[in-house]
Amino acid sequence: MNISQSLGLMVQEFSHSFYLNFIKDDRYMQMVKGLGNTLLISVLAILLGVTFGALAFLLRNSFFLDNSRFKILRGLGKVLKGIGYVYVDVIRATPMVTQLLIIYFVIFASVNINAIFVAVLAFGFNSGAYVSEIFRAGIQSIDNGQMEAGRSLGLSKIQTMAYIIVPQAIKNILPTLANEFIVLIKETAVVGYISVQDLTRGADIIRSLTFEPFLPLVAAAVVYYIIIKFLTLAIAAFERRLRASDDR
């Protein structure tokens, strides 16, 4: 057997394997459907995460109550801060899969509910804790002199935040937030635990049909890689543009 013959045999084997794993019975649709769910869950979860993150950030910075004239409002401020702190602390110190399982099997145990919806909720709730930290770091990166300059002009704390601090902080926050989205896409690979068919589970379904793990699982990895590479490059370009607008 010469080289070209054995090469031919390999190509033949590969195309048969490819046919078996992806073409036969439209098996590739398992992965397409899975990819759709992966993206759906990631996008909705990041939106929910930003919402939870903003809420947690506001709770942890209940500054509008700090200087209240009324003791009960100052007390309320402390309680809100505590809630925000516990949320961020607990979420960040426990594994995502565990949180997912608890939300699905404990919190929604007795309700018949769409598993994708639960996944969005779980990932959004999880992401919110990290997003609130991203907001905090972004705001903290702005020199305190900015707040003092705003306040000394007579702007209120909230006005100074809105017109001076936040517009500057957003430049630091957006790229980090986009990175959080990337992390989220990868993390959603565990939704199979609650029987949601995402990209990883789609590939695994093919594996269980063909008993050939190599092609479907590697294909899933390649798809993740392409999506994430694309997003990473887009973020880098976006960051360059933000920086360009800094030295005008």
Binding site: E148, S152, L153
Partner: peptide
Amino acid sequence: NKIRQKMGMVFQQFNLFPHLSVLDNIILA
């Protein structure tokens, strides 16, 4: 906030708002 409007303050480190033009720095407040 009302009282501070009557008192301007100038800092050692200037503390201009870097995201705003000179005009916008001045007219914001």
